[in-house]
Design a protein around this nucleic acid. Structure first.
Length: 422
DNA sequence: TCTGGGGTCCTAGGACCC
DNA sequence: TCTGGGGTCCTAGGACCC
């Protein structure tokens, strides 16, 4: 196990992406909404100061949004994904071992950087990410991933650190851990925090100092691992090769309630086609497909929630198989007379394409299928997604999620590239 | 009226087997 | 009337993450 580890995290990442391309947003309260323009999932500091919470529904704060001129964006994952890649390119110049952890966070192995240089190194990372991409970031450094995460949280919360917090030394840990509420430790959520509170464990330091058997009893093996990491004994290494995934899903809330099977069928077919693309992108096939749908659980109307699955005779990545299975499963789950708010297609039992067990009676020649899918993916990549699609998927979805204020794809679509006049 | 999406891991409990 | 024990596998559900 190497280390120390750094965690680099883009501040208010989606909001920062919007700000890079629209400088007048810099001093305004800005928020980015979840799909379907539902909840706030990224907030500028100004918006946080107005009291808008993470995950808060837009409709609850409409008044405040109007009064304060809050700039509200629909999420633009094409933009955020591309910005994320640029940040990653930048980080890779600082360490040969970088683990992208989420769209806005990466772990770096800083083995080989002398302790006394870590502070400057952290500031260099921050400055270069800012200069190359325009994204403000914070850096936390510690002997384990959990302590690096915790240091990053401190760097973000406490301005006196100027965006970089080093927790490699024991005395820094002893100083800082008592100040961090235990629910801010990576892996401790609401339920665990409530359990710990009953035991009088309130801070990261309290948790670190718990006897292991007691931790195990309260939080199982996960808790034990967290405590070891808090003590500076790394249990988690960088994951430099992404683990093979267990499943993949495409699910959406609808822009309006869906009441007709016809519309649901189109939606499921579209989700299935997209899920099949994701499979092929990862070089895997699926053995099982599930469709689910449910009504709006918030509105007190008649509720229905159902799921149905189909096992493939032979694991497949062929859009035609997956769409057919999803529609069949959906038909079994469908019940007339409800206002459906959301549906999805989940694929599981994934395995690498080359490990597929041949079915005794197969309906398709796998080589022909693979060639057809590759051709279709290539066309959709170059000519735009949805150019070639199953006949059951309409060009424009009637149930499409709301996206009232989407920013341009500044970095990935030629007509959206910003113009500069010199 | 309006409340996201996509993952991972662990555990408990039932089915099944010898 | 008395009615085993221990293992595996699978699934559903909870908890957590961003």
């Amino acid at each position: 196990m190497a280390g120390p580890f750094a965690l680099v995290d883009g501040n208010n990442f989606y909001v920062s992406c919007e700000r890079v391309f629209d400088p007048k947003l810099a001093v305004m309260p800005v928020g980015v909404l979840s799909n379907n323009d539902g909840c706030f999932i990224s907030r500028s500091d100004e918006l946080k100061a107005l009291g808008v919470k993470m995950g808060q529904p837009l409709f609850e704060v409409r008044d405040l949004v109007r009064r304060h001129g809050v700039q509200v964006f629909s999420s633009n994952y094409t933009l955020y994904g591309d910005m994320s890649r640029r940040v990653l390119d930048c980080l890779q110049t600082f360490s040969p071992a970088v683990e992208p952890y989420s769209i806005d966070e990466s772990f770096l192995d800083l083995g080989g950087v002398p302790d006394r240089e870590l502070q400057d190194f952290g500031h260099d990372i921050r400055a270069q990410v800012r200069q190359w991409t325009g994204i403000p970031a914070c850096v936390g450094i510690g002997p384990s991933k959990t302590l690096a995460k915790l240091a990053n949280w401190v760097a973000k919360k406490r301005p006196e650190h100027r965006g970089v917090c080093i927790m490699t030394e024991k005395d820094a840990q002893d100083r800082i851990l008592p100040l961090v509420p235990v629910e801010n430790v990576w892996g401790i959520g609401r339920a665990s925090a409530a359990k710990l509170a009953k035991l009088g464990v309130c801070t990261a330091a309290d948790l670190r100092d718990m006897p292991l058997p007691q931790v195990r009893k309260a939080l199982t093996v996960m808790g034990e691992r967290i405590v070891c990491e808090l003590r500076g004994l790394p249990c988690l290494d960088l994951e430099l090769v992404p683990p093979t995934r267990q499943g993949t899903a495409v699910t959406r809330s609808f822009g309006h309630p869906v009441t007709r099977w016809e519309e649901m069928r189109e939606a499921l077919a579209g989700f299935a086609a997209r899920a099949a693309e994701k499979l092929r992108h990862h070089g895997v096939v699926a053995g099982y497909a599930q469709a689910f749908m449910h009504t709006n659980r918030f509105n007190g109307g008649p509720q229905h929630s159902a799921a149905h699955g189909v096992t493939f005779p032979q694991a497949t990545g062929d859009t035609r198989d997956i769409v057919a299975a999803a529609v069949r499963a959906g038909e079994a789950a469908w019940k007339e007379g409800f206002r459906y708010a959301k549906a999805g297609v989940v694929l599981s039992d994934l395995m690498p394409c080359d490990a597929v067990q041949s079915a005794l009676f197969r309906s398709r020649d796998p080589d022909r299928s693979a060639r057809l899918m590759a051709a279709m993916d290539a066309l959709n990549r170059t000519l735009g997604s949805g150019t070639v699609r199953p006949a059951s998927v309409p060009r424009k979805a009637s149930w499409a999620p709301r996206a009232g204020n989407m920013s341009p794809c500044y970095t990935t679509r030629l007509k959206d590239v910003p113009e500069a006049k010199a």
